[in-house]
C-alpha cells in the first residue's frame, strides 16, 4: 500500500508548512526585488493560493508550488534599487568586544561596501548569494527553487563573489 502523505488542507499541516517555508519564501522575494512590502504581499498571496487549492496540491509538491506561484507573480513587480540588509555588529559579539573604535568603524565601512556590492549584482547572482549566505540554504535547495542544476548555482556563486570582489576593490 502506498504511504499516505499528509494533506495541506489539514490546518495543522498547513500551519507547520507555513512556519517552515514562509520566511524563506518571503526573503527569497525580498532578495529578488529589494522591497520588503512587495515581498510580503507576494509571499502572502502564494500561501493564500496554496490554501485555496490545498486539495489539488499534493504535500510533496507544495514547496515547489508556492515558489512557482511566487516567481510567476513577481514577474510584474519592478525591482527596487537596493536590498538593504541589517547586520550584527561585530563589537557586540562576545569574542570581539576588545576591538578598537577604529576597527569597528572600518568594519562598518566594509559592510556598507558589501551591501552596495550585493545590490549591484545581477538578479540571479544576488538571489543565489543571499539564499546561500543569509538563508543558509544548500546549493541543492537553491537549485530546486530556481529550477536549475546545482552546477549552475555553483557557477552563479563563484561569479557573484568575483564580481563583488571587483566592486569592493582593495580595502
Amino acid at each position: 500500500m502506498p504511504k499516505l502523505l499528509p494533506s495541506i488542507c489539514d490546518e495543522s499541516v498547513f500551519s507547520a508548512f507555513f512556519e517552515e517555508h514562509a520566511r524563506s519564501l518571503r526573503n527569497y522575494l525580498f532578495y529578488k526585488f529589494g522591497d520588503e512590502e512587495s515581498a510580503e504581499d507576494v509571499a502572502q498571496e502564494s500561501f493564500v493560493r496554496l490554501w485555496n487549492n490545498c486539495s489539488k496540491v499534493p504535500f510533496d509538491k507544495a514547496k515547489s508550488y508556492v515558489y512557482t506561484i511566487a516567481t510567476n507573480l513577481s514577474t510584474s513587480i519592478k525591482r527596487h534599487e537596493k536590498v538593504q540588509l541589517k547586520y550584527q555588529e561585530r563589537n557586540k559579539l562576545a569574542d570581539r568586544s576588545n576591538e578598537s573604535p577604529e576597527f569597528v568603524l572600518q568594519e562598518k565601512e566594509f559592510m556598507e561596501k558589501l551591501n552596495n556590492a550585493i545590490s549591484k549584482l545581477p538578479d540571479k547572482q544576488r538571489e543565489a548569494f543571499l539564499m546561500s549566505r543569509v538563508e543558509k540554504k544548500t546549493y541543492k535547495e537553491i537549485a530546486e527553487i530556481a529550477g536549475v542544476s546545482v552546477k549552475a548555482i555553483e557557477k552563479l556563486m563563484h561569479k557573484a563573489l568575483v564580481k563583488m570582489r571587483k566592486e569592493i576593490g582593495d580595502v
Binding site: S15, F110, M111, R133, L161, D170
Partner: peptide, 28 residues
C-alpha cells in the same frame, strides 16, 4: 583577505523576518 571578508561579512547579516507577524492567521 577580501574574499574572506566577504565571506565573514555576509555571515553577519541578520536573516530578515516578517514585518507583519500575523500573516498566517490572516491567511487562514
Amino acid at each position: 583577505p577580501i574574499y574572506k571578508k566577504i565571506k565573514d561579512g555576509s555571515e553577519a547579516y541578520i536573516r530578515p523576518d516578517f514585518i507583519n507577524p500575523d500573516l498566517l492567521e490572516q491567511i487562514k
